[in-house]
Simulated scan of single mutants.
Amino acid sequence: MDFRVGLFDATFVPLGFIILLSYQLFLYFRVRYAPMRTVIGVNHLARRHWVESMMKDNDKNNILAVQTLRNTTMGAHFNTTEPLLGARDPTLRCIKFIIRMVCFLLSVLTFMKSVRYINHVNFLINVPLQTLRCPPEYVSTVLAKGCNFHTVGIRAFYFVCPLFMWLLSPIAMLCSCTFLVPLLYYLDVSGLDQQ
């Protein structure tokens, strides 16, 4: 029985990770070469136009810009707790725990980077164009970096779900990965056709 459980872990867990990694590679190329077909690409374009409009009429929009960026930053500030569920093999339990902690650490670090970039935008967006000589394209690029780090942080939380399922069984982990990919695809597709 233990040999079969070890074989399932050695087979189904890497297969689940390959499924998730394959989807992330697909999404990367879709964002890069057909950005308007993804939510990420549409959001990048919308944020670029938003920054330009905020900076164009800075006297009227400065409070709106800061409040919007503050609300965006607050999305990256939340704490999670996770229970430690037991596994039979202490080594495997340790590996599962380390992988989950790495996922959480990656999420926290990317959220911190997101907050950092968005805080930079808070200052850049309210400086008059004539004073700073900083084009709106630069400000929107900094905002896009912050939002990209936020997206990576959210993805790290999504990937923790299959890791929790792995505590139950490698088959549950594989099923969770298989379920997660269509869910992510549904969340990532913009519904706009590439023109």
Rank of each mutant, 00 (worst) to 15 (best):
M1D: 11
D2N: 15
R4I: 07
V5N: 15
G6V: 00
V13S: 04
I19H: 02
L21M: 02
L21T: 02
S22N: 01
F29Y: 05
M36N: 00
V39L: 05
G41Y: 01
N43C: 04
R47H: 02
R48I: 10
E52R: 10
E52V: 03
M55H: 10
N58M: 09
N61W: 04
N62W: 15
L64G: 09
L64W: 09
L64I: 13
L64N: 11
A65D: 05
V66Q: 10
V66R: 12
L69H: 02
T73I: 15
M74W: 03
G75F: 10
G75N: 12
H77N: 13
T81I: 11
E82W: 04
P83V: 13
P83W: 08
L84Q: 13
L84V: 12
L85T: 09
G86F: 04
R93F: 04
R93N: 06
C94Y: 14
C94P: 07
C94L: 15
K96H: 07
I98K: 11
I98E: 10
I99G: 11
C103A: 14
C103I: 09
F104S: 07
L105A: 14
L106V: 13
M112V: 12
M112G: 08
S114Y: 02
V115S: 13
R116H: 09
I118K: 07
I118W: 05
H120D: 14
H120T: 12
H120F: 14
N122L: 08
F123H: 15
L124G: 14
I125Y: 03
P128K: 08
P128I: 10
Q130I: 08
C134A: 08
E137Y: 05
V142M: 05
A144W: 15
A144F: 13
C147I: 04
T151H: 01
V152T: 06
Y158E: 09
V160T: 15
C161I: 15
L163E: 10
M165C: 15
L167V: 05
L168E: 13
I171L: 15
A172Y: 10
L180T: 01
Y185Q: 03
L187Q: 13
